[in-house]
Amino acid sequence: MTLADLITFERKRWSGSPWRPTRLGRWLLAVIAVLWLVVSAVLARSGWMWMRTFAVSWLALIGILYAAPGLAAKAMVREWREDTVWWWLSLPAPREKLLLAKFTAILARWLRLWLLVFFYIGVYVTVLNAATWGLSWQVVVEQCKIVLGEGLLALALGPFLITIGMWMGIVRREARALIALMWLLLIGILNFQAQILGLKVSGQGSDIRVELTPNYFWIGLEFFAAYILAGVIFAGLVRWLKNRAYSRVG
């Protein structure tokens, strides 16, 4: 059995069946889509040129960063909640391979979401926002740079957050506690990001400007620490499965 087979197994378990949302789910999706369009249109027509780009892309960044540990925790929690854990653990494969396949499948799913969100932001910034206000090419490029920076930041933090999410899904299998924990984590991370990216908002009304003066030393240190922590957590999860520590709680 190859790692690719296990990744296919993980992906098929999520995406093989046609997705059929409940009636409430369909309404919620419709409401979210309409709200998102309204917010985008209001921001595009508002006078705060820099703020509207900033707000839309940072809202998306929060969403995409939240989705990473969220998807990972959900994937772990559902193994126990849906009693599929014994099928999963009785696959004839080493525990590190099982976890790596799960991690890769979650990452692939999250990357699809990341592409979708930043494609939307790209269209928003370069077409909707720029066309509405007749922005110069130079301003559009400047806005794109900020959006691209945010996108790459989210991309780089994704694998770390997914590992954290997997750990959270194992340590605490209760959904509400997980959601609260993830928001706390996210607020902490975003606050730290704003500090090390040197985010500065200046001016008033339509002259609001957003500038980034990143501190590359701290950014490098942050990613180094994040990936070391992710490695330690992953090794801990493998050990946890190997020692069958999950069986202590019944």
Binding site: D5, L6, R13, S17, D83, T84, V85, W87, P92
Partner: peptide, 23 residues
């Protein structure tokens, strides 16, 4: 196991194909 689905989101034929690769 007494509970749970091995391949909840798959068709029977897909599940058989995958089982051939996993086991």
């Amino acid at each position: 196991p007494d509970r749970g689905h091995f391949t909840r989101g798959m068709s029977v034929s897909e599940a058989l194909q995958l089982a051939g690769r996993l086991y």
